[in-house]
C-alpha cells in the first residue's frame, strides 16, 4: 500500500474522530509526487555512491593495494606487537621492567630535547605570528596589498608540512635540533598567524577609534586598543600549538632534526623490538602529560575570560 494512503487509513481506523480521506484522484497525485521525490533522492544517492566506489577502485589501483599481501602479512602486524612486547631473552617485557626501560635515562634526555625544541619553536613562531598578524587581519591592516602578501606568506608557511621544511633545513643548517626548531617555528608562524589574525578580526573596534581620535599612530592604536583585547586568546592558541608541536617534534628526528624521533627510528629500522615499545610508551605518556597540563593551565589562566 502507498505510504501516504496507509498512514491516512490507519489514522482513520484508530481514531474515533473521522478523518476525511482525500478523494482518490488527489491522493494518487500526492502519492505520485512523493514517490517521484523519493526516487529522485535515491537516484542521486546511488549515483554519488557509484562515483565514490569508482574513485575507490581507481585509488586502490593507484596505491598498489594488494589484498593478498595484506592477508599474508596481516599476521606480521599482530606478531609485530607481540615481538615489541618481548625482551631479547624471550620474556614478556613487563616481567623485567628494568631491562625493558634500560635506556630510560638517555631517552628522557632526548625527550627533554624534544620538549625544548617544541617550546623554542612555538615561542619563536608565536613571536613572528604576533608581529605579522596585524597586517593580515581585515580590520587593522594598513593596506590591502600588504595584507595580501602577508596572508599568502602565512598560507605557504602552514601548507608546506613541517617535516618538509625540516628536510631542507637539515641540509642548510646541518643535522641537529636547530633544523627542527626552525621548521617548527615556520609552521607555527603560519598556523598561529592565521588564528591570531582571526582573533583580531573579532576584536572590538571602538577602542581603536577612541585612540585614533587622539591623533595616535597606527602602532599606538595596535598597542593600546587591540593588544589588551587579544592577549588572552593569543596565549591560549599558543599553548594549544605547543601541544601539537610536541607531537610534531617527536618525529622530527626521523629526518635528523633532533629529539627522541632519532632513537625511535633507529630502534624500528634495526629491529630493537623491546626498545620500540619502551620509547613509544615514553612518548605517549609524555604527550598525555603535556596535553593534560596545558589543558589545566589554559583553564586556570583563561577560564575567567572564556566564561564571560
Amino acid at each position: 500500500m502507498d505510504p501516504a494512503l496507509s498512514l491516512l487509513t490507519s489514522h482513520s481506523s484508530l481514531m474515533t474522530v473521522a478523518v476525511s480521506i482525500l478523494p482518490e484522484q488527489q491522493l494518487a497525485a500526492l502519492n505520485a509526487a512523493y514517490r517521484q521525490a523519493v526516487s529522485r533522492r535515491r537516484l542521486r544517492l546511488l549515483l554519488g555512491a557509484g562515483v565514490f566506489a569508482a574513485a575507490l577502485v581507481l585509488a586502490a589501483i593507484g596505491a598498489e593495494v594488494n589484498l593478498r599481501t595484506f592477508f599474508t602479512y596481516f599476521g606480521n602486524f599482530i606478531s609485530y606487537f607481540d615481538r615489541i612486547l618481548t625482551l631479547d631473552n624471550g620474556q614478556r617485557v613487563w616481567a623485567d621492567v628494568g631491562e625493558w626501560f634500560w635506556g630510560l635515562r638517555k631517552w628522557l634526555k632526548m625527550l627533554g630535547e624534544t620538549l625544548l625544541i617544541s617550546y623554542v619553536g612555538t615561542l619563536i613562531g608565536a613571536i613572528f605570528a604576533f608581529a605579522l598578524n596585524f597586517f593580515a587581519a581585515e580590520n587593522t591592516s594598513p593596506s590591502s596589498w600588504l595584507r595580501f602578501v602577508v596572508r599568502r606568506l602565512l598560507e605557504f608557511a602552514r601548507t608546506v608540512p613541517g617535516i618538509v621544511f625540516a628536510l631542507i633545513f637539515v641540509i642548510a643548517f646541518g643535522l641537529g635540533p636547530m633544523a627542527g626548531v626552525l621548521a617548527i617555528a615556520i609552521h607555527s608562524t603560519g598556523a598561529l598567524g592565521k588564528l591570531f589574525s582571526e582573533i583580531v578580526e573579532n576584536a572590538d573596534m571602538k577602542p581603536v577609534e577612541g585612540i585614533r581620535s587622539t591623533g595616535a599612530s597606527w602602532l599606538s592604536c595596535m598597542r593600546f586598543a587591540i593588544v589588551p583585547q587579544v592577549t588572552a586568546g593569543y596565549a591560549s592558541y599558543a599553548l594549544l600549538r605547543f601541544e601539537i608541536n610536541v607531537r610534531e617534534a617527536s618525529v622530527m628526528g626521523f629526518v635528523g632534526a633532533g629529539g627522541i624521533g632519532q632513537e625511535l627510528v633507529v630502534a624500528i629500522r634495526k629491529f630493537y623490538y623491546s626498545d620500540v615499545s619502551a620509547i613509544l610508551i615514553t612518548i605517549i605518556v609524555t604527550v598525555f602529560i603535556i596535553d593534560i597540563s596545558t589543558g589545566w593551565l589554559r583553564g586556570r589562566l583563561f577560564g575567567k575570560e572564556a566564561r564571560t
Binding site: A63, F70, Y73, N76, F77, R247, I268, R269, I283
Partner: peptide, 25 residues
C-alpha cells in the same frame, strides 16, 4: 591517536614492505 602517522607508517613498512600500501594502512 597518541602515535603519530609517521610512526604507524614505519611500523606498516616493516609489515607489508615499502610502498604506497603501507601508507594507506
Amino acid at each position: 591517536r597518541g602515535v603519530d602517522t609517521l610512526i604507524w607508517a614505519l611500523v606498516w613498512i616493516n609489515v607489508v614492505g615499502l610502498g604506497p600500501f603501507a601508507g594507506v594502512l
